[in-house]
């Protein structure tokens, strides 16, 4: 027995393909072919999804200006959403940007899109009561390094070989972006409902990755210091507490 692929409904085939003729069996009121009437659906689908991308990637749309429509049109026709929850749409856009010929001269655009995706994920992430700073302050120094710190569901980390947060900030504020500075690691914290990106000092990303992998603070700190000898643990812990990036503290 061979299993035949599910039939594509005739209405659907040309929906994302402007070069295809309208499907058969569609009528204008006089019984004639639907013509432009089918194009209304075609336009609604493409423009609706393009608009969803534009609201999901506002800074990318700002820097690409008119070319964003070209990018979005090409993306929606090849990558329609896999869910009706459009707040998740565009996870494949950074990868698509890496192969999109017009972006070849600006390879940092893909990481800019990754930063915007991470900000959007943070915005919709679950709420969780933050760890009160005094809980951490009251841990005896000899036990601190055995503590497991839980990161907030809204915390995100974006690492880039480009100065992605500087680029994002410049574009948002209307300055000409320059990609010359060294790469940046970005920590996204959501103290209330608005995610805020912060540039991480060297070693910070290493510590956060170790914590999120379940390591206690001691080994995580050692890894961070190995990556960046000047790593300042208390500065990062203060930043996390202030930005409500920690939600719990446990011991083995």
């Amino acid at each position: 027995m061979t299993r035949t692929a599910p039939e594509t409904p005739p209405f659907l085939g040309p929906l994302l393909d402007p070069a295809s003729p309208e499907p058969n069996g569609l009528r204008a009121p006089d019984g004639g072919p639907a013509g432009r009437r089918y194009d209304v659906y075609r336009n609604n689908v493409t423009i609706g999804l393009m608009q969803a991308l534009k609201s999901g990637f506002p800074v990318l749309a700002q820097v690409l200006d008119d070319r964003f429509a070209d990018l979005a049109r090409a993306f929606v026709r090849t990558h329609p959403p896999d869910s009706p929850i459009l707040q998740r749409y565009g996870a494949a856009l950074p990868g698509f940007l890496e192969t999109w010929a017009p972006a070849r001269g600006a390879p940092w655009l893909a990481d800019l899109a990754r930063l915007e995706l991470a900000l959007r994920e943070s915005y919709h992430a679950a709420d969780a009561p933050p760890l009160p700073p005094e809980v951490l302050a009251n841990v005896p120094p000899d036990r601190l390094m055995t503590a497991h710190l839980q990161l907030a569901p809204s915390l995100r980390l974006v690492r880039s070989r480009w100065p992605v947060l500087s680029l994002w900030t410049d574009i948002r504020d209307g300055r000409a972006p320059t990609a010359r500075a060294p790469g940046e690691a970005v920590l996204i914290l959501r103290p209330d409902y608005d995610p805020a990106p912060h540039r991480l000092a060297p070693g910070g990303a290493t510590l956060l990755l170790a914590l999120s992998a379940g390591q206690p603070l001691g080994p995580a700190h050692a890894a961070a210091v190995a990556a960046a000898p000047q790593f300042d643990l208390s500065a990062l812990l203060t930043q996390l507490l202030t930005g409500k990036g920690l939600t719990g503290l446990t011991f083995d």
Binding site: T8, L12, Y41, N44, V45, A52, D82, S83, P84
Partner: peptide, 16 residues
């Protein structure tokens, strides 16, 4: 209808 085979089209499409 708005989805087919897992793809979502973001529009309300008609049926006979």
């Amino acid at each position: 209808w708005s989805t087919h085979e897992g793809a979502y089209f973001g529009d309300l499409l008609p049926l006979p």
